[in-house]
């Protein structure tokens, strides 16, 4: 009886407040995205006259222009290469480092671990000038490798942190038993650690992939050729702030958004867990 009373006491004021707050926040969050999406099927004239209305004659013309003149197909391909390859390496390298830092019992592991943690505080801005000079002098400028290497480097500190704390929790007995059975450390890594770490592998992959997919400054400054640009950089140069064809611009924005929305639908649990773990980027 008294429990029921308490429940109703909570529900009146608090429930109304909760719903109002959450619904308003959700509308402010989602409505601009919905507006962007349906406006991308309208021509410039239609947008000027009826900015809010749904498309009266839906058209794909904006999208065709984006792929024809905006190099969007190529940019999409580059984004996949940049984010995909760097993510693969971040996952493998961080798990290897995490294994070395936790299961070997060497004193130097603490120093290496601390050095990696230091990297969390260093931002792309603070190294972009020397990185640019280094890349122009080594011929890495405007190459795939010249983007992928920094992507790996900047993904590592957080990934090593996540991998280390996870592998730390794997029982030492598992490794010791394998050593007694005559397995090399390399075999232990590929056959045991990698398999046992699959949950944290998912976390590191989604965080790295998302972060690098949306990265802008490094591709923008370390590449110059049209055919080296990633999706965000192409969108900015093709449909940026000074572009006056709003329909075209909306289509470019939707092209930039859709891949990650699909990614989010598929991987949202891993993504939410990953960010929730305190794994943070930008």
């Amino acid at each position: 009886m008294s429990k029921k009373n308490r429940d109703t006491k909570i529900s009146n004021g608090t429930t109304v407040f909760s719903y109002t707050f959450l619904i308003m926040f959700t509308i402010i969050t989602v409505f601009p995205i919905i507006w962007m999406t349906y406006s991308s099927f309208k021509l410039m004239g239609d947008i000027m006259i009826n900015p809010l209305s749904l498309p009266s004659h839906p058209t794909l013309a904006n999208y065709l222009k984006c792929f024809k003149y905006g190099n969007m197909g190529f940019a999409f391909f580059n984004s996949v290469i940049y984010s995909g390859i760097s993510t693969l390496f971040i996952v493998i390298l961080s798990l290897q480092a995490g294994f070395a830092l936790t299961k070997f019992g060497y004193k130097s592991a603490k120093v290496f671990g601390a050095l990696f943690t230091l990297g969390l505080l260093i931002t792309v801005n603070s190294v972009i000038t020397p990185l640019f000079i280094m890349e122009t002098n080594t011929g890495l400028y405007n190459t795939y490798l010249g983007v992928i290497l920094p992507y790996i480097a900047f993904g590592l500190p957080m990934a090593v942190l996540i991998a280390t704390s996870y592998i730390h929790g794997i029982p030492n007995a598992l490794v010791e038993a394998a050593v007694i059975d005559g397995a090399t450390y390399n075999q232990i890594f590929w056959r045991i650690i990698l398999i046992v770490s699959s949950p944290v592998m998912a976390t590191i992959s989604v965080l790295s992939f998302l972060g690098n997919w949306n990265e802008f400054l490094m591709v923008f400054t370390l590449t110059s050729g049209q055919n080296m640009r990633s999706l965000p950089v192409s969108i900015n140069s093709f449909a940026g702030r000074l572009n006056q064809d709003y329909g075209l611009q909306f289509a470019a924005l939707v092209i930039g958004t859709i891949p990650m929305f699909i990614f989010y639908l598929v991987a949202h649990n891993a993504l939410i867990e990953g960010f929730g773990e305190g794994a943070l980027k930008e």
Partner: peptide, 16 residues
């Protein structure tokens, strides 16, 4: 829904 913007690149967010 509220978490959705995290997946969008800042460039797209800015232009939108």
């Amino acid at each position: 829904m509220i978490f959705l913007p995290i997946t969008i690149s800042s460039i797209v967010v800015a232009l939108l």
